[in-house]
Design a protein around this nucleic acid. Structure first.
Length: 325
DNA sequence: AATAGAGCCAACCGCACCTCG
DNA sequence: TCGAGGTGCGGTTGGCTCTAT
């Protein structure tokens, strides 16, 4: 990976110049009058990291002033989170990391922060970029729709009825790379407005393992009840509130039926999925179902985890969609 | 060597939720 | 209860670098 600081310093002057010309009709996130934009210089990086090391993170809006930076708080936060934080790992995404990203994306959709939380040292921005520039193309070249993880030929009816992982719960527009912008100015004319995890991605992958065992609303209940802590590793605590903040779940309607399974079970279930431990995942799935039935008194069966695990999980076998997940 | 196009990624944006007074 | 401020998220953009011609 290129050194952003190097490129930043090289283009700092141009960026500074741009900052005065790039004003559009868009309203800035905060008052940017007199504030610098564009790539960060090494001096700014030093100011910011020194300040945070001394005073700690937080109060981003007022931080620039206190640190002596002519940046908006959001910009400072982003720079710290994505580049300056000591825990940020630089360098190429390793094959095992790539594999993990693929699995997590299949499970979670474009929940970059969640995915990043499972990959130590990687930021959501980095993973998002890597996905858009590498993995989505890789999947396409393999004939797999990167949004649904299903064969491209199978997706004709999914385009309309289900959501893509790219569906932005907050915006009607879908993501597009620069290449897509050039070749396909309207890549997704009918985006599904549903939230990603809350329904779209998961429902779209209804044959998928996780979904067969925990339907959408159950997952939502987990989010609501426990703030997703069980799904996250130790580094994710800061992201927990963020998940609640995303608008991907709605708190109001589902505060009942929330304690049917333990955090431990669900957490290890997700870990099992990630680690391709089909047997463990199956075991966890059974536990989840038992807990769910006990707590709800519902004797109805969730989709058979045995079947779903053996047929559709992890691409280990065939499934309704031809073995693709 | 010059140029165009593609690849890549840091940074920006608007939005939504949370917290607190 | 309400509104302002703070924060974090995913999508998008701009521009630097690389590669092909």
């Amino acid at each position: 990976m290129r050194n952003p600081s190097t490129s930043a310093s090289a283009s700092a002057a141009a960026a500074a110049a741009n900052s005065t010309t790039s004003t559009t009709t868009k309203t800035p996130c905060c008052s940017k009058v007199g504030l610098k934009r564009g790539p960060w210089t090494p001096e700014e990086d030093e100011l910011l990291s020194n300040y945070i090391k001394k005073e700690g993170e937080g109060r981003w809006r007022t931080l620039p002033k206190r640190a002596g930076l002519l940046r908006c708080g959001k910009s400072c936060r982003l720079r710290w989170m994505n580049y300056l934080r000591p825990s940020v790992k630089r360098g190429q995404i390793a094959p095992d990391e790539e594999d993990l990203i693929l699995r997590l994306h299949r499970l979670l959709g474009n929940r970059w922060s969640l995915i990043a939380g499972r990959i130590p040292g990687r930021t959501d921005n980095e993973i998002k970029n890597y996905w858009n520039t590498h993995l989505s193309k890789k999947l396409i070249s393999q004939g797999i729709d990167p949004r649904t993880h299903k064969p491209l030929s199978d997706n004709s009816d999914h385009q309309n009825q289900s959501s893509s992982a790219d569906a932005n719960p907050r915006k009607a527009s879908s993501s597009s790379s620069k290449a897509n912008r050039k070749t396909n100015p309207n890549p997704n004319p009918n985006p599904n407005p549903n939230p990603v995890l809350s329904s779209s991605h998961l429902e779209d992958n209804h044959n998928d393992t996780a979904l067969m065992m925990m339907n959408t609303s159950q997952l939502l209940h987990r989010e609501t009840a426990h703030g997703y802590t069980s799904l996250l590793n130790g580094e994710d605590e800061a992201r927990v509130s963020g998940l609640r903040n995303t608008g991907h779940h709605r708190r109001n309607e589902e505060d009942e039926d929330i304690n049917y399974c333990s955090d431990d079970v669900l957490s290890s279930f997700l870990n099992s999925l990630i680690n391709e431990d089909a047997f463990a995942a199956q075991h966890q799935a059974l536990q989840l179902q038992q807990q769910h039935n006990q707590s709800t008194g519902n004797t109805a069966q969730l989709p058979d985890p045995l079947v779903s695990i053996s047929t559709s999980a992890f691409g280990l076998g065939t499934s309704d969609n031809g073995g693709f997940i």
